[in-house]
Design a protein around this nucleic acid. Structure first.
Length: 1065
RNA sequence: GCGCCUAUAGCUCAGACGGUUAGAGCACCACACUGAUAAUGUGGGGGUCGGAGGUUCAAGUCCUCCUAGGCGCACCA
């Protein structure tokens, strides 16, 4: 029966183009998938099992779509497609749901921009309902664009059944999680120092703090050195009486809130009598005295020295009197964090505005005072500066200190005023300098279970593996309690209701719609503000009935949402509980390495706290995508190729290959260049396509319908099949280990074998003479078909679009992505054959080098080649003879007497690894001897090198080619053995060479004449007599190779140029 | 300041356990080959393996210090 390839094409073309436009093919394939429902079919054909054993679970880290996808998104998108496709072919069911991160400041920002709002007060004026509607409308603005890009990149993911963090079901799972944590005693409401934006009136999370590189900016602040007057002790002779303890601060505005000073317990402090510009006795670190030479004198009198520990407990008068007399306040405390690198070695402590400050003062039982409002302005009791923004208050604070006016305590001394340049965090969105301020917030008590997080981390496999105990492990080790509430509007609610009367305290935490409806007696459908805020009820614990249960107004940090996705995307535990139990943790996630402190981390926190399990088994943290110039990608610099243009010009598979074959998935960085993407096309897609083109060209010419077969006896066929088996085994291992870059490398190697060895060496076996398909033709077609079909299946995850076109062209079936991953059992193994063929290629390579060195062009046949090797290459002499164009190939065993006839020598190689330990230093002598020829073998076979006898195993002795004798050239083989090429020319050989040159000229003439491969020609050869004679002598060869049905000759003068004329016969 | 990663050919990267002539792909040059191929083959130029010490018979590989880049932490008076 006759058949015709392609059996199916996605394009309109009836035949396979030699040079395809890949993007066009890709779009046709995408259209086919869309119409065919291939993606859904690929999931449906892998049925789920109750115990989850047949599922491969992968989590999509939800992006916040506030712009178009860039290379970073595409990169993870490709991996998120590649691995599931592979696992699907391996027989797993892989659900892939797209996720959207929808809450949080980015959405609020966009809404504020659209609505022209600047402050939270304006949001309140507008109304939360309207504001949140605007947020909701804005978050999926780019959803369609995203879907277009993701679809175009050939990522199969379910957009219809996506999850959104703002969906009621998702949010119900989120508040369930909060309640779980609450019941486990892992959340608390606390007063902690957080980076706080007074302009946006919200604390920021660590992640937000580092939203971009510009957050830390240099800022110039006033730096003061202030002396606080020590209180007199009972001992009238105490030298500290009447002295001032010197502190240094870059935030003068925090001095009214001073509640203590800290000293290093082991630091030595000196009490000095000033001889400089400011009179008095001052206490400061010994090592810092010199820094104050101007004020204290070059060599002030040291009255006494103390260690920090000795000073602890000493009272002083606060610089401002606002909090004078507060319990336990205004004493010297010892703290390890104190250094003497700058300042005075004594630290002013304001508990409301410094984390270390608060920790030390909490331990000493001092109240945390915060005389600053949410807008960053001073409040009661700091009346002198009330209403002043704290940074603006620096000036009057300094003025009062200088003049001892206002509430400045008598005896307080402003010793020095200077300016200090330091990098300081600013709000990533409004660019105002942040405050560190004590804020009331809810926390997940991560410190309570971070040890368990570390243990569970051991169960996770990381790529690259240093992340486990490095960036991620360290981050977990140093984990702090996680501030999960934001004083904002658009987010999941903190599901906590409190009594509004402290006399009748009560706290209720809700974890479901049902619980809310039960207590509040109304239907609840939306957990967003303001609706959730409207849920109030009388406080059941208040017998007067006057107080009301009201929700705390905060919303949850968006990272709480994304950390909840593992269960919330399935509305666990309200739905899918069995499925979740069986399929948690996920098999695989992949994101940018920065997520070690973001999504990876929040997933891990919640999984540990809620389920005592890791959230994922394997995590790939990829590196950073850089622009063409090696810098960070930047829209304004335009230093990276436009994504849409690359899709249109080079295609999605080319970009996929470029990204997947790079080291970026192993944690390295990647520079994106157009050249790199084009190289992917050249190195992989074109050779792959060419192989397919070759196959169909000749199969169609022969009218042959190939079939799956792996039993060919032809050595090249068997070699290719054995190589294919090795390749499939490698790919399986690599993709199982998420080692995508090496899988790409393996593929390049196999494609090289296929195109540059197998097909090149087998071309004539695909040529069917006289319409008779021989058994050898069949073997060749069947083998190549089988290899291409298998190769397509292996490449399906790596080049899904291109391979679909080829595979369906080969098989006519529905989709390569519905096929199974190749089984090794279906492919013959033949290690020996592979080893032999590798040497055969070495032989050809070495022989080509000899030809080159002796200026013997390849078309010139040579009489013979002798191959001296230990391997039996008898099955391959024909291949070698043809490849290197010699009349005969003679095989000689390396250890035979015959081998020594070729002027060979022995070569001694000392095995340093074996001999080194025994000989020690002398091994160098032996090595030197082996290289300089100072070695020998005695009659008993004992090898001596450099005067040292070597024992068996410490050396290898091999036979290598010696100097060439006349008429031959020798070359060594890399794996041992050598080749001897007969370089003697005869008139017969030269004539045949000339005939072959003629063939080449005729072929070129055919091409130039635009003839088809199978066109017959009438040939006229005009040449000097000797060439004509050669042509005549090899007329059968010439005519056969060029499909000439007639050959005419015309003799030219000696030395004239050859002229061939071809006409279609 | 602390921690992790990286540094090998013009470019991108490989180089278990230390073993003596450091490789590949791309790029460049020459030659060869070419009726599937946008290729391919052979040869060539090109390397102080970031620097300096050290351990060892032997260091790209192990140790110490330093330099540069990336990332993270802390940036604190």
């Amino acid at each position: 029966m006759t058949s015709s390839y392609p059996k199916v094409s996605h394009t309109d073309a009836a035949s396979v183009p030699a040079s395809p436009r890949f993007p066009s093919i890709e779009e046709a394939v995408l259209a086919y998938w869309e119409k065919d429902g291939t993606f859904q079919a690929s999931i449906d054909q892998r049925p789920t099992r109750a115990d989850g054993g047949d599922e491969f679970v992968f989590y999509d880290g939800p992006p916040f779509a506030n712009g178009l996808p860039h290379y970073g998104h595409l990169l993870t998108g490709y991996v998120k497609d590649l691995i599931p496709r592979y696992q699907t072919m391996r027989g797993k069911r892989v659900e892939r749901r797209f996720g959207w991160d929808t809450h949080g400041l980015p959405a609020e920002l966009e809404a504020m921009r659209q609505l022209g709002l600047k402050t939270t007060d304006e949001i309140h004026e507008l109304g939360i309902e309207k504001f949140n509607e605007a947020c909701r409308a804005s978050v999926l603005k780019y959803a369609d664009e995203w879907q277009r890009y993701v679809t175009r990149q050939a990522r199969w993911v379910d957009f219809d059944n996506d999850y959104r963090t703002m969906n009621p079901e998702f949010m119900e799972s989120v508040i369930w999680a909060f309640k779980q944590l609450h019941e486990k005693g892992l959340v608390y409401e606390g007063f902690r120092i957080l980076p706080y934006c007074w302009n946006d009136e919200t604390p920021l999370s660590n992640h937000e703090l580092r939203m971009d590189d510009d957050v830390y900016k240099m800022r110039q602040d006033p730096a003061l050195t202030v002396g606080f007057r020590l209180a007199d002790s009972d001992d009238a002779a105490d030298p500290l009486n009447g002295a001032n303890v010197l502190i240094w601060t870059t935030t003068p505005w925090t001095l009214p809130s001073n509640m203590g000073v800290a000293v290093g317990p082991d630091v030595t402090y000196a009490l000095v009598e000033s001889t400089g510009s400011v009179a008095g006795r001052f206490l400061l670190a010994e090592g810092r005295v010199a820094a104050y030479a101007k004020e204290l004198g070059d060599e002030p009198t040291v009255v006494a020295t103390f260690t920090g520990s000795e000073l602890a407990g000493r009272r002083y008068l606060p610089p401002f009197s606002y909090y004078a007399g507060a319990d336990n306040a205004h004493q010297v405390l010892a703290a390890d964090f104190v250094t003497t690198e700058d300042g005075t070695g004594i630290v002013h402590l304001a508990p409301g505005f410094g984390e270390d400050d608060k920790a030390v003062l909490d331990a000493a039982g001092v109240e945390t005072v915060v005389p600053v409002g949410k807008d960053g302005r001073f409040t009661f009791p700091v009346e002198e500066y009330a209403g002043l923004q704290v940074f603006d208050a620096n000036k009057p604070v300094i003025a009062d200190l200088k003049a001892t006016t206002g509430k400045v305590t008598a005896g307080t001394v402003l010793l020095r005023q200077e300016t200090y340049d330091h990098s300081y965090p600013h709000c990533w969105r409004c660019r105002q300098p942040l405050l560190y301020m004590a804020v009331s917030s809810w926390f997940v008590e991560v410190t309570k279970f971070k040890g368990r997080m570390g243990e569970l981390n051991e169960q996770i496999s990381w790529t690259p593996d240093h992340i486990k105990h490095g960036q991620f492990g360290k981050w977990v080790e140093n984990a702090r309690d996680w501030s999960i509430t934001r004083n904002r509007f658009w987010g999941s609610p903190v599901p906590v209701w409190k009594s509004d009367n402290p006399e009748y305290p009560r706290v209720d935490v809700y974890g479901s719609f049902a619980e809310l409806e039960a207590d509040f007696g109304v239907e609840v459908t939306d957990l967003h503000r303001p609706y959730v805020d409207d849920l109030t009820r009388p406080n059941p614990d208040d017998p007067t009935g006057q107080s009301t249960m009201r929700r705390v107004t905060d919303v949850l940090d968006v990272w709480f949402d994304s950390g909840s996705m593992s269960f919330a995307q399935n509305h666990y535990p309200f739905e899918n509980a069995d499925w979740f139990e069986a399929n948690f943790p996920a098999d695989f996630i992949v994101e940018y390495i920065g997520q070690t402190r973001g999504w990876f981390y929040t997933l891990h926190i919640l999984a540990t706290a809620l389920f005592d399990r890791p959230a994922f088994k394997s995590c790939v943290s990829h590196g950073i995508v850089l622009g063409s110039d090696g810098q960070k990608m930047s829209k304004s610099l335009r230093n990276y190729p436009d994504v849409a243009e690359v899709f249109d010009r080079d295609g999605a598979d080319a970009m996929r290959w470029f990204l997947m074959s790079s080291p970026i998935l192993r944690g390295g960085n990647l520079v994106v260049t157009e050249q790199g993407i084009r190289d992917s096309v050249r190195q992989v897609l074109i050779p792959l396509w060419s192989s397919w083109y070759f196959f169909q060209l000749y199969a169609n010419a022969a009218g042959y319908d190939a079939k799956r077969r792996t039993d060919s006896s032809d050595p090249l066929d068997r070699y290719l099949l054995a190589k294919l088996r090795d390749y499939v085994a490698e790919m399986t291992e690599q993709l199982d280990a998420y080692d995508v870059a090496n899988a790409c490398e393996s593929t390049r190697g196999f494609i090289d074998v296929l195109t540059n060895w197998y097909i090149r060496r087998s071309r004539e076996r695909f040529w069917v003479a006289d319409g008779v398909v021989t058994a050898d033709n069949e073997a060749a077609f069947d083998t190549l078909w089988t290899v291409l079909e298998t190769l397509c299946r292996v490449l399906a995850p790596l080049a899904p679009l291109t391979v679909e076109e080829i595979w369906r062209g080969l098989t006519g079936e529905r989709s390569v992505h519905l096929a199974d991953w190749p089984s090794l059992d279906d492919l013959p193994a033949d290690e020996a054959l592979v080893a032999q063929m590798d040497v055969v290629r070495d032989v050809c390579s070495a022989t080509s080098a000899l030809r080159k060195a002796n200026s013997l062009r390849n078309r010139l046949p040579l009489a013979g080649l002798t191959v001296v090797t230990d391997l039996d290459l008898s099955a391959f002499t024909g291949i070698v003879a043809d490849e290197v164009n010699v009349k005969g190939v003679q095989l000689v065993a390396a250890d035979s007497d015959e081998a020594s006839a070729y002027g060979v020598e022995q070569k001694l190689t000392v095995n340093a690894r074996a001999a080194g330990p025994r000989l020690g230093k002398d091994v160098q002598l032996a090595i030197k001897g082996s290289k300089t020829g100072d070695w020998s073998v005695d009659a008993a076979g004992v090898v001596t090198a450099g005067g040292l006898a070597l024992v068996e195993g410490e050396y290898t002795l091999e036979t290598v080619a010696g100097d060439a004798s006349g008429g031959t050239a020798t070359g060594v083989l890399p794996r041992g053995g050598f080749v001897v090429l007969d370089t003697q020319l005869t008139p017969e050989l030269e004539a045949e060479g000339a005939a072959r040159d003629l063939v080449r000229a005729v072929q070129q003439a055919r091409k130039d004449a635009g003839l088809e491969v199978s066109d017959r020609i009438a040939l006229t050869v005009a040449a000097p007599a000797d060439l004509v004679a050669a042509a005549k002598a090899h007329e059968a060869l010439v005519a056969g190779e060029t499909l000439a049905t007639s050959v005419a000759y015309e003799e030219l003068a000696s030395g004239a140029e050859l002229k061939v004329t071809v006409t279609r016969a």
